[in-house]
Design a protein around this nucleic acid. Structure first.
Length: 494
RNA sequence: GCUCCGGUAGUCUAGCCCGGCCAAGGAUAUCGGCCUUUCGAGCCGACGACCCGGGUUCAAAUCCCGGCCGGAGCACCA
């Protein structure tokens, strides 16, 4: 068939090429402005994985208009980094996510308590004093704890005792009734409040000893904030089912839930507890250590927030699990920074080489190969010495003609370079191009995301680009900092 | 074990709901060529996928059934 077509009508086989720019699919059931939320817990600054929900929610609120809440879920005092209350909004601002209102759950204990009491009065919850492991076993067998069917009065009494501090940590738990015979064991009666006396909450201190668990506070707040749409990872699917029981009991209107797939990030350090421990031990320099997957680390390396946004829009919110691709993120970032980044030379493991056969050379190297950004000028005078990458110089055979980029041609003679004119056409004839650095360059360290460090020298004019992303030619894009008289580069990508 | 969610090239994605325009599109990666005073960018090309098996149909990536594989949850974490 195809062969025939080729004979009869080859023009039909011509494919027109068009690049697609992916857009996010529409949200279902949108009637007017949307109300959505981000719900991080303040255990650390934001990382790449969390940026997905932030970007997607932000995109939709911007598309349809409405309100985006930042709800800080700080109902587990054992897992709070106090600085995170400020770090999270900072990270979101860097990402370009527009937050309309911040809600902090630790301000809302009384609201949760009100609903908890109502639910007890409705006979839809109970307080059990059965130890956790025993309770779990009973649930697995589909059996109630003895206190599940106590009267409402007795339950309310227990609730007051709980609030009054008469139970110690772990002695009493408030449980929402669902269905003990639910085929999915994850949905059967779930814990909603527990006693915590052994920790001080960074915001409310010891004012409360009964803390809500995530499923309860989330459902109450989603309802109280009148959310229209909830985007969450599909690891929360069972939590959604659990929360639906509260919606049914209280006859609340349900938001639209969308569960997107799981993202695995190979070789990326995201786990907050691990990072915290690493920082404490001095293994990581801080929350922005270039080896980490925090947004602060990416920012430090010169990854542009727009690249992250494009990446997550490209991925969308389908429910299949995916693997994160640094290559794709870097490609988007390169597209953004390539036309803006100035070019400089950075010579790692440098070796000084003398160029003989000429008294002085003028170098005129463009800041950018295609954009008009002017030139870096250097004048080298006899005795002319330049720095080259030692390994590269060693790998070149004696007598080879080389081009020192934007400087001159040279023939390798042992440890010196013999001046060989400045005719650029030698490149066409196959001369290898290498880069160099004047000896009065500035000491430079470049930190790679894998933890390795390149030490060397970069050209003195790099000082003009402190705080910017530059491209070290033949090396890659780096963001430039200045500390203690040295240039510090954080590597973004090639 | 129980429950749920998935499965399009190495990776990401379009198409699937509403079967035919799919000869499966795009991006990225890799490789090759051109261009370029960078190993960057650009241009051109190559590579490479509908998990498997049945069924329905004139026609299946798309609908149905069975299997296989992957992931998540079954916390007094979020």
């Amino acid at each position: 068939m195809r062969k025939k077509l080729e004979e009869i009508a080859p023009e039909l086989l011509e494919r027109k090429k068009k690049e697609e720019k992916k857009e996010l699919e529409d949200l279902p059931d949108v009637n007017g402005p949307v109300r959505m939320r981000l719900a991080p817990s303040p255990s650390g600054p934001m990382h790449l994985g969390q940026s997905r929900m932030a970007i997607l929610n932000d995109e939709y609120v911007k598309r349809y208009g409405g309100t985006l809440f930042l709800r800080i879920e700080d109902t587990n005092p054992h897992n709070i980094l106090p600085e995170a209350y400020d770090m999270i909004p900072e990270d979101l601002e860097w990402l370009g996510v527009k937050i309309h209102q911040i809600v902090i759950q630790s301000d809302r204990f009384e609201i949760y308590y009100d609903y908890a009491r109502k639910l007890l009065e409705m006979g839809k919850a109970y307080i059990t004093t059965v130890p956790a492991d025993e309770w779990r076993k009973l649930k697995a067998a589909g059996k109630p704890t003895p206190d599940r069917e106590l009267s409402v009065e007795e339950q309310l009494e227990r609730w007051e005792k709980m609030l009054g501090g008469e139970y110690e940590d772990g002695e009493a738990v408030y449980v929402v009734k669902t269905d003990l015979n639910h085929p999915n064991p994850a949905i059967r009666d779930w814990a909603a409040f527990r006693v915590i006396k052994d920790a001080e909450h960074p915001r409310v201190g010891n004012r409360y000893i009964v803390y809500p668990l995530m499923n309860f506070s989330v459902a109450v707040d989603d309802h109280e904030l009148n959310l229209t749409h909830v985007l969450r990872g599909k690891d929360h699917l069972n939590n959604t089912y659990r929360q639906m029981y509260l919606y049914e009991y209280f006859q609340w209107k349900k938001p639209v839930y969308i569960h997107y797939g799981w993202v695995t990030m190979k070789d990326t350090i995201l786990k907050t507890s691990l990072i915290k421990e690493g920082i404490r031990r001095g293994e990581f320099s801080g929350w922005d250590d270039p080896r980490l997957g925090t947004l602060r680390a990416l920012a430090k390396r010169g990854i542009h927030p727009e690249a992250i946004r494009r990446y997550w829009i490209d991925v969308g919110l389908k429910s299949a699990d995916i693997e994160f691709s640094w290559d794709n993120l870097y490609a988007y970032n390169r597209e953004i920074i390539d036309s803006k980044a100035k070019r400089y030379f950075f010579v790692w493991n440098p070796r000084e080489i003398e160029i003989r056969g000429i008294d002085a050379i003028e170098s005129r190297a463009p800041y950018h190969p295609s954009k008009d950004m002017g030139f870096r000028h250097y004048t080298l005078k006899s005795p002319i010495r330049v720095l080259l990458v030692e390994d590269e110089w060693k790998s070149i055979d004696d007598g080879t003609l080389l081009r020192l980029k934007d400087l001159c041609n040279v023939v390798k003679r042992g440890n010196i370079g013999e001046y060989a004119g400045n005719d650029v056409s030698v490149i066409k004839r196959g001369a290898k191009i290498i880069h160099w650095c004047p000896t009065e360059g500035i000491e430079t360290k470049v930190f790679m995301p894998d933890g390795t460090v390149y030490e060397g020298v970069s050209e003195p004019l790099v000082r003009e680009s402190i705080g910017e992303v530059v491209q070290f030619e033949r090396f890659g894009f780096c963001k430039i900092y200045y500390e203690n008289g040295k240039i510090m580069g954080y590597f973004a990508h090639r």
